[in-house]
Design a protein around this nucleic acid. Sequence first.
DNA 1: AACTAGCTCAACCGCCTGCTC
DNA 2: AGAGCAGGCGGTTGAGCTAGT
Length: 245
Amino acid sequence: MGRKPCCSKGEDLNRGAWIADEDKILADYIRVHGHGKWSTLPQKAGLKRCGKSCRLRWMNYLRPDIKRGNISEDEEDLIIRLHKLLGNRWSLIVGRLPGRTDNEIKNYWNSHLRKRGSKDDHNIKRSTFSESSPAAAPPNVIRTKATKISKPVLFINNNNPPPLTNDANAEESRPFLVDNVASKANTNDDDSISNNIIMQPATTTSCSGSFLPFLNEDDDKPFSPSFLLDYDIENVCLYDLLNSD
DNA sequence: AACTAGCTCAACCGCCTGCTC
DNA sequence: AGAGCAGGCGGTTGAGCTAGT
C-alpha cells in the first residue's frame, strides 16, 4: 500500500532553486492553458519539475496578482489578530490578505512576529498545534478544521451534560457545551429549566456562525465558565466573517 | 579581512482531505 | 465501501545575505 511519491528522487527532475527559463516556461504555459492538472502540467509544459514544485512556484512567486515587498503595519496587525484567532492556519489567514502568499506570511510570522507575539500576548503559549493533539492548541484559538455542526446551539446544562465521546462523528453533532455557567448566570438552582438553557447563537449575537466543539487545553473537557468571560465577541464575529463567502 | 551568528525566504517533505473509480 | 490519486497545507530545511566581532 502507500501512495506513489509525487516526485520520487530517482526520477530525472530538477530540484532546488528555479531558474529564469523555467519560470518563463511555467508562466507562459499557465497563461495559455491555465493550470488544470498540476501532476501532468510539467510534462505538457516541458519542465523537468514535479507538479507540486510547479504549483508551489506558481502560487508563491509567479502568480500575477502577488503583492511583493514590505508588509504594511495594517497587514502586520491583521496577521497578528488573525493568528491569535486562527493559529497557524496560514491558508485562512492569507485569504484575508489579498496578494500575499501563505508561505510569505508563514515566513514573516516565523521571523518577525513569533517572538513579539509571545511577548505581547501571553495567551498564545504555543504557535503551533496539531490536529492529533488538540490539547496543544492555544486556548483562545479557534480550531477551524473542526467539522461544521449541523445544529448550532449553545447548550448550557449544569447537571446533565450530554455524553462526550472521542468519536469524531459524534463530536460533529455534539452541541456547544458550556459547563456550569447556568448556576452563575442564574442563582435559582431550583429551577431546572433555567439550568438547561438552549440558545440559538444567531438570536443571541449578531453573528450567524456555527459554533465549534471547543476543548479545554488542560483536561480535554469543555471550557470552564471563565471561557465566556474571556471570549472576545469581536473574534467570534471575525471568525464568522472568515468562514463566510 | 576573516569568521560567525542570525535572519530571510524559496523550496522541499510528508501528511491530510476530498474526489473519483 | 474502500483504494488510489491529486491537490492543498503546515512544518522544516538550507542557501544566500547581512551585521557584528
